[in-house]
């Protein structure tokens, strides 16, 4: 069962997306901010990370950069989630090393497609 780390500070979004993903056969773990997300990436070693960008003090891009700079977690694909579909957001996500980018509110079928695509190409899977 593929394990997904969801880094999201909004409780309802975390709960909702987590439960729906569980229902689609994923094992979920959660982080509520960027530092704990970075830490959990190292301890849980998930197959994929869903990273919210607007996370308060440290944003999702910075968290992604740090996860990618740690050899132990560098290979984990990360999908960025932002509220705005701005070209600059997408460019920045790619720049810091995200495998893909999606907008909130989450369109579940679309996100599932992206998750599966990432897992299919993720090394070590």
């Amino acid at each position: 069962m593929p394990k997904i780390l969801l880094v999201e500070d909004n409780e309802m979004n975390r709960d909702m997306l987590g439960r729906r993903l569980k229902r689609h056969g994923f094992d979920l773990c959660f982080a509520v901010d960027a530092p704990s997300g970075i830490a959990m990436a190292g301890t849980e070693l998930p197959d994929l990370i869903l990273m919210d960008i607007a996370l308060g003090e440290m944003d999702g891009w910075e968290a992604t950069r740090r996860i990618k700079s740690n050899p132990a977690t560098a290979e984990i694909p990360i999908i960025a989630l932002t509220a705005h579909a701005l070209a600059s957001d997408r460019d920045k996500s790619v720049e810091v090393g995200c495998a893909d980018f999606d907008t909130k509110p989450v369109d579940l079928p679309r996100l599932l497609g992206k998750i599966n695509a990432c897992l299919g190409t993720a090394p070590g899977k």
């Binding site: 309802m12 979004n13 909702m16 997306l17 439960r19 729906r20 509220a83 909130k104 509110p105 579940l108």
Partner: peptide, 16 residues
């Protein structure tokens, strides 16, 4: 949008 997303998301879950 934030609370509305919750309304949509949860109703979608319940619907499923």
């Amino acid at each position: 949008r934030t609370p509305l997303n919750a309304v949509i998301g949860y109703s979608e879950m319940l619907l499923e």
